[in-house]
């Protein structure tokens, strides 16, 4: 028992080492083809050293896209959180309501099915034409996209409530309201959180898209401007920041979920 555990631990260390080596090799190859042998032009792929340097400088330098990195990040975050929180506040209760109420289900769902078949990016031109190029239109895009994912998952979470749980609660004399709040919603919580996570990921991607089309700040704007300025180093810095912030957002939500959805595997 102890031996096999030790073996497992050794294996784990081995694979972490392999990962580190693999990543180092990746960086070395990148460095070789750019700085050492100059196989590709820096305009299409800058060296890793240059990217790191630009990343550090971007915290203080505003050129050429008008803002520092942290200003871009904050601008994007503000939009995503506004639209996303609004999307959650509307999406979760509406999804629960649709799943719980038969009439609502029959009449709202067909319209919603139609609404959700609109590709996420498709909301961008619609909202921009309605609200113009400003924060409101971008928040509305985030709202529409996160709302769809959140509503679908809340809906199917409630619909997937184990009927035996409902039976048991009913035989204990639970009222309709208690069935909803004590049984259906708690059992749907993991689904609801899946929706919140999906919604957040999609919302983050849509902010980037919206900023690329019309904005004067934000990470999407940053990568778009730097393409026009042919600054591949800053595009990569922007892309990595987009990925990193997205990961952090998911991580925070995951921690939140771990804390509040208990009693599951």
């Amino acid at each position: 028992m102890k031996l096999s555990k030790m073996k497992k631990k050794n294996n784990k260390v081995k694979y972490i080492l392999i990962s580190i080596i693999s990543f180092t090799v990746f960086l070395i190859i990148w460095y070789m083809v750019t700085d050492v042998f100059k196989l590709v032009k820096p305009i299409s792929l800058p060296s890793p050293v240059k990217v790191l340097e630009s990343f550090i400088n971007k915290f203080t330098v505003k050129r050429p896209d008008g803002s520092t990195l942290q200003a871009h990040v904050l601008s994007s975050l503000r939009i995503v959180l506004t639209g996303y929180i609004a999307g959650s506040i509307v999406g979760v209760p509406l999804g629960i309501f649709m799943a719980w109420n038969r009439k609502a289900d029959m009449f709202i769902r067909p319209v919603f099915d139609w609404f959700r078949s609109v590709p996420g990016m498709g909301w961008i031109p619609v909202m921009i034409l309605i609200f113009g190029i400003n924060i409101a239109s971008k928040a509305a895009i985030v709202f529409a996209i996160s709302f769809v994912a959140i509503l679908i998952n809340s809906y199917s979470g409630i619909k997937n409530t184990n009927p035996v749980h409902m039976w048991v609660a009913q035989t204990f004399g639970a009222s309709n309201k208690q069935l909803l709040f004590r049984v259906a919603i708690p059992s749907a919580l993991p689904h609801i959180f899946t929706g919140l996570r999906q919604g957040l990921n999609q919302a983050w991607a849509s902010v980037v898209a919206a900023e690329m089309i019309g904005s004067n700040r934000g990470l999407g704007y940053m990568i778009q401007m730097n393409r026009e300025n042919s600054r591949a180093d800053l595009i990569i810095v922007g892309m990595l920041s987009i990925g990193l912030v997205g990961t952090i957002l998911s991580f925070v939500l995951q921690k939140f979920e771990d804390k509040y959805v208990r009693g599951r595997h």
Binding site: A205, Q224, R227, I235, M239, I242
Partner: peptide, 16 residues
């Protein structure tokens, strides 16, 4: 590292 970068953010690099 690549996974969390949305496809749309690849547009500028793809063009380059």
């Amino acid at each position: 590292i690549l996974r969390p970068i949305p496809a749309i953010a690849w547009v500028p690099m793809a063009i380059l």
